[in-house]
C-alpha cells in the first residue's frame, strides 16, 4: 500500500472508532500545502503528504479552537515528532493528549501514542542532522570578521516586518505573552527597524536555545526570507557540544537553559 493511502486509512480509522476527534494533516491547494482539519472519516481522502509540507503541525495542539474540537491525531514528520517530545518534556503535553500519525523518512510508521514517539525517534532518527549546505553556510559566516557578520545580519534583519510569523509557526513558542509583548516597559522596540529588529531576532533565537528541534517551520514561515535556521542550528550545535544533548528525544529531559551541572564548562569566565 502506498504511504499516503495508509495515512488516509489510519486517519479514517481513528476518527471512525473515536480514538481521535480531529486529524490535523495537510491538504493540497495548487502548489501550496495548507493544514487540513479532518473531523469525519469520509474526508480523510483529502489528506496529502509530500516534501512541500513544510509546516510543523504540532503547533496546532496549543491552539484553543483546535483543542475545542477534542483529541487530535496529528500528522508528524520526525522533526515535528521531536517537537512533540519537547512539548512533553516541558509539560505542555501529557500521555493521552494526542495521537501521532508518524510519517518517517521514506516510510510510514502508523498511529502512535505520544509515549511511543521518543523510542521511535531514538531507534530510527537519532542521527537527524541539518543539511550540509546549512552547516557550510554557518561555517562560512563564522569564519568572517564580527563586522562582516554584523553587516550580513543587518541586511537580513532590515527586511523583518515584525509580523511574528516565525513565532506563530514554532511549536516551541507557546508563551501566552511573548517577551516582545511585555510593554511595561517595552523591552524590545516594536519598530521594525534597527535595534528592535536585532533584539527581537536574537532573543527569539535565544529563547529556543536547546529547545529548537530543527523543523525549519520558522524559516519557511518568514515572508521576508530571513535565514533564521542559521541562528537556530548554530545554537543547537553549541548546546550539543557543550551539554551533550539534543532537543526532542527525551520526554524526561530537563531544559538546557534552566538546569545546570557543577561541571559545566567555564573557560570563558575569567
Amino acid at each position: 500500500m502506498e504511504m499516503i493511502d495508509a495515512l488516509r486509512a489510519d486517519a479514517a480509522k481513528v476518527l471512525a472508532d473515536g480514538r481521535a476527534k480531529v486529524v490535523i494533516g495537510y491538504q493540497a491547494r495548487g502548489d501550496h500545502r495548507a493544514p487540513l482539519f479532518v473531523t469525519t472519516a469520509d474526508r480523510a481522502a483529502s489528506l496529502v503528504y509530500d516534501d512541500a509540507c513544510k509546516q510543523n503541525l504540532a503547533v496546532y495542539l496549543r491552539k484553543p479552537e483546535v483543542k475545542l474540537l477534542g483529541k487530535a491525531a496529528v500528522v508528524a514528520s520526525p522533526a515535528a515528532m521531536r517537537s512533540l517530545v519537547l512539548l512533553m518534556s516541558e509539560s505542555q503535553l501529557t500521555g493521552d493528549d494526542a495521537l501521532v500519525l508518524a510519517v518517517g523518512v521514506g516510510e510510514y510508521h502508523g498511529v502512535l501514542e505520544l509515549a511511543q514517539v521518543a523510542p521511535l525517534l531514538k531507534e530510527k532518527y537519532a542521527a537527524l542532522a541539518p543539511s550540509p549546505e546549512l552547516l557550510r553556510e554557518i561555517e562560512k559566516l563564522a569564519a568572517k570578521t564580527p563586522e562582516e557578520r554584523a553587516a550580513f545580519w543587518a541586511k537580513q534583519f532590515a527586511k523583518c516586518t515584525r509580523c511574528y510569523a516565525c513565532r506563530a509557526a514554532c511549536p516551541g513558542c507557546y508563551c501566552t505573552r511573548c517577551i516582545v509583548e511585555k510593554n511595561v516597559p517595552q523591552w524590545i522596540s516594536t519598530a521594525a527597524a534597527g535595534h528592535g529588529n536585532y533584539a527581537w531576532n536574537v532573543i527569539r533565537a535565544f529563547h529556543l536555545a536547546g529547545r529548537c528541534t530543527g523543523c525549519g517551520a520558522c524559516e519557511a514561515a518568514c515572508p521576508q526570507g530571513i535565514p533564521l535556521m542559521l541562528l537556530n542550528v548554530l545554537l543547537g550545535q553549541e548546546v550539543e557540544k557543550e551539554f551533550e544533548t539534543k532537543a526532542g528525544y527525551d520526554p524526561e529531559a530537563k531544559p538546557v537553559i534552566g538546569s545546570w551541572n557543577p561541571e559545566d564548562e567555564e573557560d570563558f569566565i575569567k
Binding site: 482539519f37 516586518t161 509580523c163 510569523a165 506563530a168 509557526a169 515572508p223
Partner: peptide, 8 residues
C-alpha cells in the same frame, strides 16, 4: 482553524 495569529 489554520490561522496562527501573525501579521504576515
Amino acid at each position: 482553524l489554520a490561522c496562527l495569529s501573525c501579521g504576515a
